[in-house]
Design a binder for these strands. Structure first.
Length: 280
DNA sequence: ATTATATCCTGATCGC
DNA sequence: TGCGATCAGGATATAA
């Protein structure tokens, strides 16, 4: 009988875009979109449209056509466009790609049936594709609504003492802890796995049990890996594409994510696949 | 306060 | 070959 035939159906695993992927998209879009005028917004998915407008207000209260795009930035895992109008308060358009979302400019990298929103600009079209429809696009009136509770791992805020104080109270496994967005923002399954491997901390260790030395290694690995991944335009495991429809290349530099059953690149021991909070 | 669970959604895969 | 059932995956609301 097929006991212990733990076939790793690797082809099916998917991950959402994490910090490096979203940063890549934002950096690419910024010079392209800045200064362009928004002419028309079309939602092809009514669910997306329902959650777009500020709660309790009518869409008519927010005439977007004619506004111009200012800043384009990444905040947490979101791409945020500033929509400006002379003499008026700016609005912010925040796109969360979640699992399979793609934000592309003037290219159509996949089936039109997965096109969920279309932003017509005076210099082209900004398209939002999303197979699984987990993605979210929201219009915000206040920048404060977009400031994440977790800290940006690449900012100066992430010091070892700060990280230590955040970790201290938690008895969660460190891997689960890293996936939370209310402590550090931007990490997901791929980078949390790679970071823990790089700093040699077992994913099941209790977050609060890390030594000072381990916390310093964790901080160092987090920043190094995120920076390296950004310089490779992120990781394309299956779905992710950048704003031009291209794949990232950091998947070629992964050590553990999606590699259950393969030999370790450091010591050749077979890597064991582990499931924590529903993630492999 | 912290942590576990259900929910969302679709395509791929599995069993019959 | 086809059909229905099952499942992954992150964030969030809700329950414990």
């Amino acid at each position: 009988m097929g006991r212990s035939s733990k076939v790793c159906s690797s082809a099916t695993s998917e991950t959402m875009p994490e910090l490096p992927e979203v940063e890549t998209v934002a950096r690419q879009l910024a010079p392209t979109l800045k200064g362009q005028k928004l002419l028309k917004v079309d939602f092809l998915d009514t669910k997306l449209e329902r959650t777009f407008w500020p709660p309790g207000s009518l869409p008519a209260a927010f005439p977007l056509a004619g506004r111009s795009i200012g800043n384009v930035q990444r905040i947490g895992k979101q791409v945020v466009l500033t929509l400006e109008e002379p003499g008026q308060k700016p609005l912010w358009l925040a796109v969360h790609l979640r699992m399979t979302g793609r934000l592309v400019f003037d290219v159509e990298p996949q089936e039109p049936k997965h096109l969920r929103a279309r932003f017509k600009l005076d210099g082209g079209e900004l398209l939002f594709f999303d197979t699984r429809r987990f993605g979210v696009i929201k219009l915000h009136q206040e920048m404060a609504e977009l400031v994440p509770t977790g800290i940006e791992p690449l900012s100066n805020e992430l010091t070892s003492p700060r990280l230590a104080s955040l970790l201290k109270k938690s008895r969660q496994p460190i891997k689960t802890w890293l996936l939370r967005q209310d402590r550090l923002v931007g990490l997901g399954n791929i980078y949390a796995s790679e970071i823990l491997f790089a700093c040699a901390i077992h994913p099941e260790r209790a977050a609060g049990s890390l030594s000072e030395c381990e916390i310093r290694r964790l901080r160092r690995a987090t920043r190094a890996i995120l920076r390296r991944a950004i310089s490779h335009q992120g990781t394309t495991f299956s779905d992710y594409r950048d704003s031009r429809g291209n794949k990232g290349s950091f998947q070629n530099l992964l050590h553990v994510y999606g590699k259950g059953g393969e030999p370790c690149k450091k010591c050749e021991t077979l890597l064991v696949r582990l499931v924590q909070s529903g993630r492999s």
